[in-house]
Design a protein around this nucleic acid. Structure first.
Length: 527
DNA sequence: TTTTGAGTTGTTCGA
DNA sequence: GTCGAACAACTCAAA
């Protein structure tokens, strides 16, 4: 590390002891990783201990127990975020999530700025970077919120041990779920494997505690410590910039999260139970990416919904339906915690023998939204263009990939992981496994979505398909969801040339359904 | 240990 | 077009 950096750290520390506060130098970050050189950057022994707050999937300042605990130590507080592309496995975010992360970090950094602090940004192996930051900042305690992937759990254990050896405490707090996975057990003291009893047990056990605002303003340390700039994290797409229009759809960050929740309560919750299935309506909360990044806590959502509905008793049914969707988020994290093998293997081991097939060409057609099934293509294009797909359509598209094309659910899961702004390991894995029939509490295998029927049922007026598959827009409603069955004169009048302006179906529904049933029958026999 | 009731989101067929 | 039954048993969770 450059000599002047040591000096500036030393100088700031001394000034801190004298003044209590010291405006940080605006250091341009250039080579953060060289700072990890041990020994060269010994903590300043004469300075008072500081604390380090490690932001992870909790990019907010309110209702954040770990941050509140860190603030209440009264120690000068450093805040950091580490972009880790080095930890193996599925640790790094997909491309669409990285776009969201960029903007969410920007919002968080501004909020911390407003409190007189600074969000330190680093890249590299999380454990190495945290250890290095502890040395640089002279922290004797590291605070963070718990995260729930197998890699996060391992990282927490590693850091706990590694920091303890240096006399530094590692303090991990709950903050991202309503119920910790270990706290919900069956009467037989096992983890739940079925949603309904799981959620009943949660509801019986306790009401989530009310959220708490940041009680005392953290005393952010102003000792100069190097940080990358947000752009150095390289989270945004370059050429082409496929996210150029996304700010029209999304407002990442806590303010955007609370605005989305308010919009939902005032505009949609009164029709949630019905409207949530209609993809052309804005009837869902759109909170999933905000919850994934922890810009709003599930407790905040829970209590705001309860409070709002208390004044509107006629909303009870819709309220319970919405809360049960938060319950699915809880259940998915519960499953990932207790059954980490679901990251790459089927929850139901029988499916290890499932005769997957399907071609690369078919996978590409599905990804591009060129299957010849309008509701599927509309969903896949909405996903590509906005980083989001409506829940009902996710099921239809996932069912189509796994059951009509017999392509392994892992392929779809990876595509969603890369393209969804709300990509969340627990939700994505369990959603895909459930749809493929190999997950916990999966639907009976003979439930194979008929994409044409689903389109007619949930997009009866065709608003959704017309928006995302504009080349079909002029088809009349009764042919919109099945262009291949429309009379030639109808197609011609609508300007549709099958096989040219819009693809013919890449598989025929009846035959695909029969093949899927046969494949499922096969693993039944083998058992 | 045994029994009992139930399980997010569906489709097809025939009356 | 509408409606009810069949689709297949199996596993989970609690009594």
């Amino acid at each position: 590390m450059p000599a002047d950096e040591t000096l500036s750290v030393l100088l700031s520390s001394i000034l801190w002891t004298i003044n209590g506060r010291y405006p940080h130098a605006d250091l341009k970050s250039s080579a953060p990783r060289t700072l990890a050189n041990k020994g060269k950057c010994a903590p300043i022994m004469t300075s008072p201990p500081t604390a380090l707050y490690w932001f992870r999937q909790d990019l907010r300042l309110d209702d954040l127990p770990a941050l509140h605990a860190a603030a209440s130590t009264g120690k000068p507080l450093f805040a950091c975020y580490v972009l880790d592309d080095t930890t193996p496995g599925r640790y790094a975010q997909g491309a669409a999530s990285r776009w969201w992360l960029h903007h969410s970090l920007h919002a968080l950094a501004q909020a911390i700025d407003a409190l007189g602090g600074r969000l330190l940004l680093r890249r590299g192996n999380s454990a190495d970077v945290i250890v290095s930051l502890v040395e640089e900042t002279g922290a004797d305690a590291v605070f963070c919120s718990r995260a729930y992937t197998p890699w996060d759990s391992k990282l927490e254990t590693t850091l706990h041990t590694q920091l303890a050896e240096q006399g530094v405490t590692f303090k991990r707090f709950a903050g991202s779920l309503l119920f910790e996975p270990e706290s919900i057990r069956t009467g037989g003291d096992t983890p739940f494997r079925v949603y309904t009893p799981f959620w009943k047990s949660c509801r019986r056990q306790s009401t989530p505690k009310p959220p708490v605002a940041l009680a005392e303003k953290p005393a952010f340390a102003n000792i100069a410590v190097q940080s990358l700039s947000l752009d150095d994290l390289e989270l945004l797409p370059r050429q082409p910039n496929w996210a150029a229009s996304w700010p029209d759809y999304w407002q990442p960050g806590s303010a955007g999260a609370h605005a989305a929740l308010s919009r939902f309560l005032e505009g949609s919750i009164d029709n949630y139970a019905q409207g949530r299935d209609v993809p052309s309506l804005q009837a869902t909360s759109l909170l999933s990416p905000h919850l994934h990044f922890g810009e709003i806590s599930p407790r905040q959502v829970w209590h705001k919904v309860i409070d709002y509905c208390a004044d509107h008793p006629q909303l009870d049914g819709n309220r319970e339906k919405f809360l049960s969707e938060l319950g699915w988020r809880e259940f998915n994290h519960h499953l990932l915690t207790h059954y980490p093998h679901i990251c790459d293997s089927p929850f139901n081991p029988r499916f290890a023998e499932f005769p997957w097939m399907g071609s690369e060409d078919q996978l590409r057609a599905w990804q591009k939204g060129a299957t010849g099934y309008p509701i599927v293509d509309a969903g896949m294009r909405q996903l590509w263009q906005t980083g989001y797909m409506h829940n009902r359509v996710r099921m239809i598209c996932a069912s189509f990939l796994t059951k009509h094309l017999l392509i392994p659910w892992q392929e779809g899961e990876r595509w969603f992981w890369d393209t969804l702004v709300d990509a969340d390991l627990a939700n994505n894995l369990n959603g895909w496994q459930w749809t493929a029939g190999c997950g916990a509490d999966a639907a009976p295998y003979f439930r194979i979505f008929n994409p044409t029927l689903q389109g007619k049922k949930f997009d009866a007026q065709g608003d959704y398909v017309r928006r995302w598959v504009p080349e079909l827009a002029r088809l009349p409603d009764r042919h919109l969801h099945e262009p291949a069955a429309a009379p030639p004169e109808v197609l011609e009048a609508a300007g549709v040339k099958l096989g040219a302006s819009y693809p013919l179906p890449i598989v025929e529904h009846r035959a695909a359904r029969e093949a899927a049933l046969a494949a499922y029958a096969l693993i039944k026999q083998r058992e």
